[in-house]
């Protein structure tokens, strides 16, 4: 570790926390805690963006820090909490696969993405290049979470967490994207979230539940 600047070490730590939170989300049964974890992930992301901004003196990243914080720590969790209150869905939910097995698959995914990222990150020149593997692992884990959950809200949170992983890859491993792209993505996430919220109400109107198994009925009946 010697010779690596302190801010880079700090980003590594935040990367690890990001991954840790991704695992915690994978293992979490309660939807309210899931939202809190998501908010915590957003916070870690915001701080890491800020640290990158400070470490590499790129002022425009400060904007993304503020943006990330506002969107992912305050706005989205607030919307989700509201949704849950309105929909009155505070249940614990069972996944499709039991949690230890899910975590085991998660470990395999982590090994896979670490190895996948290794040759890429060796080409990169940034000091924090090794976080690329972690970012990739977070994306994969969020994807896994979406696969293994059968209720709508955890799936949406998985989707949002996946975006967190991508965003982290963009800021920490490559020191940020152009401002326009970032704004675009932020807007996309927000709009996506709102549309999905509307969908939830529609789904519940139709099926009286947010269990996505009911959507299976929508296919054409077998001949």
């Amino acid at each position: 570790m010697a010779g690596v600047p302190l801010y880079a070490q700090f980003i590594n730590l935040l990367a690890a926390i990001l991954l840790l939170l991704a695992f915690a989300m994978l293992a979490q049964r309660r939807v309210l805690t899931l939202i809190d974890l998501f908010a915590a992930q957003g916070l870690a992301l915001a701080i890491s963006t800020g640290v990158v901004a400070y470490g590499t003196s790129q002022p425009h990243l400060y904007f993304s820090t503020v943006l990330t914080f506002a969107l992912k720590v305050i706005l989205l969790p607030w919307i989700l909490h509201r949704l849950i209150r309105r929909l009155d869905v505070r249940w614990e939910f069972e996944g499709l696969i039991n949690i230890p097995t899910t975590m085991l698959i998660g470990i395999v995914l982590v090994v896979f993405s670490f190895n996948l990222a290794l040759p890429i990150s060796q080409l990169a020149s940034t000091v924090t290049r090794s976080t690329l593997g972690i970012a990739m692992a977070s994306v994969m884990l969020s994807f896994l979470m979406m696969i293994t959950r059968r209720k709508a809200i955890p799936q949406v949170i998985g989707f949002l967490a996946m975006e967190n992983g991508l965003f982290f890859a963009a800021t920490s491993a490559t020191y940020g994207m152009p401002m326009v792209v970032e704004l675009g993505i932020a807007l996309d996430v927000l709009v996506g979230m709102l549309i999905l919220g509307v969908f939830f109400f529609q789904i519940r109107e139709q099926f009286d539940s947010l269990d996505l198994r009911h959507l299976e009925k929508l296919k054409e009946p077998d001949q």
Binding site: A15, I99, P100, F114, G133, I134
Partner: peptide, 24 residues
């Protein structure tokens, strides 16, 4: 309990993996 402890075990394994990836 095995779920709780299994999580602990896997996190500890992850710690080793992260250590190998980030070099410390």
């Amino acid at each position: 309990a095995p779920e709780f402890l299994g999580t602990a075990f896997l996190l500890a394994v992850l710690a080793m993996l992260v250590n190998l990836l980030l070099g410390g």
